[in-house]
Design a protein around this nucleic acid. Structure first.
Lengths: 237, 237, 237, 237
DNA sequence: GATGAATGAGTGTTCATTCAT
DNA sequence: AATGAATGAACACTCATTCAT
């Protein structure tokens, strides 16, 4: 279905690197071509245009999510909660070895391209979804160490948010400290959740409060009506 | 120092909007000119080039941080911890009213421009620093409700990370749910911190563990040597 | 309304010459630019694109039709019918002096571009209409020498057709003979019409047959139904 | 001499269609390839280049002139003069069924390519010559109904000119009326010629005037000297 | 005879910028 | 301060063509 060739792979690989480091708009086709050692017509043999190349790049990121990002984190430790932090450590190292040039490639493209190209948006969305789903599955594996009824998907969304938002700060600061501090706070949160779960059992904390950290009401927060809504404050649990 | 004029302001304002929605590279000078109803010579009268205009835009964002972002959140409530969530609610509304087109203008530029232009990097860095400092000051106002020795700056970095990372997800998903879930988890974290502080007093929790959520050792994590370091795992507190 | 400048005029003039001699598609923007001694950006200051330049060229042809094509033919002679042949002589000379490179600029573009670009089509259509209208007005001036009820517009359409079709043949043959022969036959037709008119008066030729050379029935020849129609043959008058 | 194959035929056929509808320059090789369901290597197996393909297309038109254009007109009627109008009716129908997209394929190419490629020019010239020769032969068959000494070749050139020039007008107008009017005038001319022939016999019209509709003097009109010549006026017959 | 990847000059167009008025 | 014409390098992309398999 998707045509394969060594040339095509080289193009996608260089495009991925450049889109990551410089952004999509700031990367010229000719630069990609130079780096890949390919000449202009060849790119258009494989891709109808730059946008299609971007889609090829995102498909590559999607294909590499499992083997390059998730599995290595998983194989670092048996402890499912530690896998979360192994994952975050991986991004930290990426920042470090690239001299703060690379963060999360998909995160960067996400903000640059927003929701302008539907296929691009949906690929990024799927990337994030798979990432979150996997983190969520680790949380499920540690189910008995976490509060009953914990919004595991919400926690996974939080982890992704912290990773993306903390990488952004570290890159701008050219200093890992903001990343490390934010991740340390996330770890504190995990520890507090574990403590809470301990006391749930030991002290019989109320069951009905167990839906830890869910938004107040999803339906009440629909896009349509929320525009008029006042910031109503958020219940704790 | 900075020359003022109505024309200059119009240029900066339109550039800010366009850089936010489309990104810096993807925004052409001519588009800015059209929108501002100004012609090219005028722009170059005020700014030596596009990069200087970007700097003007970032200076504007910096100038507006206090009156447009922080003060409104602050005036929403007297409760300092609620101010954090009022701030996050502000960004949520921005996403909503723009149909997911706008998130945090500085966050977007941060990822796109990375650390390529020093002056740009330092302005973004200052923007984040001021944001974090203010949130940190709110935490200080709630000092007695939070754990002794809490890394308030780290918590503020976490809040900023969650905001940026959760906006990214919501924009990509074209759905506020990821944002709401991540923010709800952040609120859970705050509530757990408050609980911990309560029990610190009531139960005499150990003082030396009070440096809640700090990275193991900052100096040990310097850019230079960390490159070789193994992910050593993170202590909780 | 239409911006004017010497540069713009030079561009249009060179484009007109090149479109005429080589055709629209075969003429590269860069060739026009070279000839006009202008550089690429300048063209786009005046025209949004190549197609708009073509429209500018056609507007120029339209503006020149009267002073360059029609008036000179008219001032050659007082005899209205001779003006028709003076007009045809003008095209003949154009072919000759250009070594068969140029025929009718608008005719060439007409066939090349067909009806693909509406604005182009309508400008060409107007060009032909004005040409035909003027020739028709000369026929009206010679009203008493021509048959009563002559389809003057039809005769003018015939003259235009002969001019265009005969130029085509002469250009291909690199020989004026086909043009001269076709024009001589057209002159024969005119002489026969004058003879007929003479005899109409002298011999009282029937009035009701006077609608000389009209298509059988216009309504019967509408696009919709004609598709199915058999070649039914044409009545004479 | 010319290699034959089904693939080659498909290429030529699609190229013919596309050159006719879009023109030679505006038709890309890749479009032809797509339509013919063939890939680039195959085309270059049969033709050394695009120009050779054009020549193949013109050879095809030449080969089809007899069976597709002339013979059908001929078989419509026994009356030789009616055959002329049957021929013109054929082009009319082509315009109609294609929604004004197609006129005379060779006429279009003639104007676009002019006299730039010698082999192309000579093929088009031959196409026109054969067309004219055949029409001229029909006129010869009706010799006794036409004036003595009629320039039959000139009349045939006129017929071709009217066809090409009237198609051009109809296509531009997206209306058959200009074509119908011009053809009706041509029919009027034929009827007048027949009338003249009648009277030649009955009334003994002067023999020396019989060279109906010839250019004044062919030698005097040679390309070389004509450039300087004044429009000297044209004798009638 | 067919395939489709590769070539690189050329296309029309946009870019940020300059400058005379 | 403002105008808008001019500049020319760079952009994404298409072209006709070649060639190894």
């Amino acid at each position: 279905m998707t045509p394969r060739s060594e040339t095509r792979d080289r193009i996608v690989e260089e495009a991925a690197r450049l889109f990551h480091e410089r952004g999509y708009s700031a990367t010229g086709i000719s630069t990609i071509l130079d780096r890949a050692g390919v000449n202009s017509g060849s790119l258009y043999h494989f891709f109808p245009g730059k946008e299609a190349l971007l889609i090829g790049v995102l498909e590559r990121h999607l294909a590499q999510l499992e083997p390059v990002i998730l599995r290595p984190a998983e194989s670092t430790t048996e402890d499912p909660l530690e896998r979360v932090f192994a994952l975050l450590e991986g991004y930290r190292r990426g920042l470090l070895v690239s001299g703060f040039a690379r963060g999360c490639p998909v995160g960067n493209l996400s903000l640059e391209l927003g929701d302008r190209v539907p296929r691009v948006r949906s690929l990024i969305d799927e990337y994030f979804s798979r990432w979150v789903t996997r983190v969520s599955s680790w949380l499920a594996q540690a189910e008995d160490r976490l509060p009953v009824g914990l919004d595991r998907n919400g926690v996974a969304r939080l982890v992704l948010a912290v990773m993306e938002g903390a990488l952004m700060q570290a890159r701008t600061a050219r200093d890992l400290a903001p990343y490390d501090h934010a991740v340390a706070q996330l770890r504190a949160h995990f520890r507090l959740l574990e403590d809470y779960a301990d006391r749930e059992i030991a002290e019989g904390l109320p069951a009905e409060e167990a839906a830890v950290g869910r938004p107040e009401s999803e339906s009440a927060r629909s896009v349509a009506e929320a525009e008029a809504a006042e910031p109503s404050g958020w219940r704790y649990w």
